[in-house]
Design a protein around this nucleic acid. Structure first.
Lengths: 233, 233, 233, 233
DNA sequence: GATGAATGAGTCTTCATTCAT
DNA sequence: GATGAATGAAGACTCATTCAT
């Protein structure tokens, strides 16, 4: 009985995402006639997403209000709803864009990795560095990864991020675990992401040398966690 | 400015807890002067805390409403406020009671641990098993450990739990790290708790064999993370 | 539509007062057998009224809560309602007792006044001094005179005080205005009380020399207001 | 501790008014930057203030509820809060608008007053007449002047009105009291306003001939109170 | 598209009053 | 008589969302 959330339209997460896509993303991809308009819309969207990121970081997702986001973006609430059907859609779109950016920023570097060319330790160190750097640049990413504070119910629209991240890590790990059953790889990847998140939280909570110490700690934890994989190769 | 909670006094978590204790918990410990809390009252408190635990688990702390808690407990909103001055106090009291229970459930077992009598691996396995069992029995504990979803700002009243937990772990680790500087031990403990939380999230999200597999994964991660400590013994 | 006050029992003010009288005042007067009990009750009543006076002074009548009064008196809300049927009754009883005390404190002095024995100026000065002294000793008296802040609707249960005060002043003025029609005397008395209240407010709001200056100002205002009466005598 | 209003900044009445102005009133004076208040909004504000005036008059300021005001205005609570941050702001804005109107209604007449051109008696009579007429037209003005019912603590945001009124009277009196020390003039003005308020209360509480009689009584009281000033001219 | 206004259910909290013990 | 618990209707205020302009 406690959950009285109701959304007449866009019942499921997927549908909501689709809805959002229809309104927001289409502008990104489409290359038709009214490009001027699209451009203005895209600018608005960016503006709104940046504002949302700031608000999410400040207050957390649950406590963030659409009005606050609109205000932060310097537009009226009505305008916000012209681009996003609801608060969730904003988070989703923001997450997906951040994910996109992250991919580009490290795919180029990590793609040509193989057990032969690079030792796991180096892979981990490099990945972690990149991830941390990215998270510091986009603190909202962490907030969204985190999701609203209902644990146990991991999967949710928010965890598109988490899921994608896990998939990413699976891809990275795959070459190092040729014989392992897929489920095991998934578990390992999940654990890696979890450990990473835990470490990141600590890293973000500290500064200077202490922060650096936690970075080392995190790398060590991951390296040793993945140690068994070394033997196989 | 969504969060408008203000408390001039009682800045730190510990102080806040003490404050709350003075108001709500007093009945638990001892009747001060005219505070002749009746049995019914104590029952109500338990009832309310149980309801709160359920609501926190279902909706998360931030989204939980005092009215929902009261409804879940089958009492009127006014009754809730006769025992707790606000939502925070409920969380604090619930957390402190859970912490209390947890301590009792594992102190007896873990106290006589020394590097000589027990290998670290066993200590970890035992501790993790106990923690997991406890968390499954009290899912609210996890929610409270987690805190509201504003990351980076780790410390807050909520993290009385986290802090206590870390202190606990420090105590456990201490005998294994006689030469390490305190700051390092703290970092290690923080990482352990973080990794544990991450693992727990995964464990709670799965069932059956998969859950068991994650339990093993978590133990492995912790054992290997703490591996360097073994050298000393 | 704004007034939603409902009182199942004791519909009118007069009835309420009677009710209160039945419960509270009876104890004061009755001299029967169970004196011990009565005495205890009377003590409680005094205790409660003193607490109420303090709370009224601090927060004003409207904002004063019965719970706060009970707390201030060191008793439970239930106990309060054993002696007073509602908040209003407390104010009424408090007012009537204060009135009583005031009467005693100045009747002895002012009774033997006649135009022949005492000049009006002296009467005024004496009365004002006494009133002020009384008000400073019982700040609640002022609050109750004031009543809740609905002007225009002067008459109300609260204004038993005001009314009695006016009657008092009429009595004092009467000998000085033998030929004036009663209505005129009433008006004059009303104005006197009004001017007095106004002056008192200013007096209470200042301290030291400034306060003394306002006292003089008030006396002057009243003397000059009543000046025309001098000619008659 | 019934009154838990807290405002770290904006301590004084004037500052508070300024604050409120920034948020709510701004539309009245001028559009800042993007504050393109629509005509409908200004209409709503007027509507709300009128409703507030009615409610204040009926129930008094303290007991007036924002919901009641909204209902009286025929809008939803949310709408009220789009224009005013809280109840206080409504009172302040209402007071300031009334003050504005009052000023215009009597400045033109009373400005060219000097002891030479006009005898004090006439000044008083004229001023009182105007004030009374104004108060009868805007009974809320009286309620706001009165303030919440905690006496002794005269000053507060409410008394912007009172303060302004006193200043007004000081200005009127000044030419008649060239040699008096400022503090004395202030005291005199304070007393005048107090006497006026007292008289007004009586006037508003009566009708017809009786009311008229009280008007005369009030004028007489003021004239005689200010009599000593006549000597100078 | 954009804006500001409008909504109304919902949140936290208080309070006069009544009840069971 | 006394106590603390219980109630439930308000009250102030917020917020996601929709609408008229």
């Amino acid at each position: 009985m406690p959950d009285k959330t109701e959304k007449p339209a866009a019942e499921t997460a997927t549908e909501a995402a689709a809805e959002a896509a229809k309104k927001a993303v289409s502008a990104t991809t489409a290359e038709e006639r009214p490009r001027r308009r699209q451009a203005r819309g895209e600018r608005r969207i960016v503006q709104l997403l940046e504002a949302a990121a700031r608000v999410f970081v400040t207050t957390g997702y649950t406590a963030a209000s659409t009005n606050a986001i609109a205000r932060e973006a310097g537009v009226s609430p009505g305008t916000l709803y012209q681009f996003f059907p609801n608060k969730e859609a904003i988070a989703i779109e923001l997450g997906s864009r951040l994910m996109h950016e992250m991919r580009q920023s490290y795919d180029e570097v990590l793609t040509p990795i193989t057990p032969e060319t690079t030792p796991l330790e180096e892979v981990i160190a490099g990945t972690v560095d990149r991830f941390i750097e990215f998270n510091c640049r986009h603190p909202a990413f962490f907030v969204l990864m985190h999701g609203p504070d209902i644990p146990g119910r991991i999967a949710e629209e928010h965890d598109a991020l988490h899921t994608t991240l896990v998939a990413r890590v699976e891809t990275i790990l795959a070459p190092f675990t040729p014989d392992a059953p897929p489920a095991a790889v998934t578990r390992t990847a999940q654990m890696c992401v979890g450990i990473y998140k835990a470490g990141l939280e600590l890293i973000l909570a500290h500064e200077g040398d202490e922060r650096e110490a936690y970075v080392q700690e995190l790398k060590g934890a991951l390296v040793r966690y993945l140690d068994p994989l070394m033997g196989t190769s």
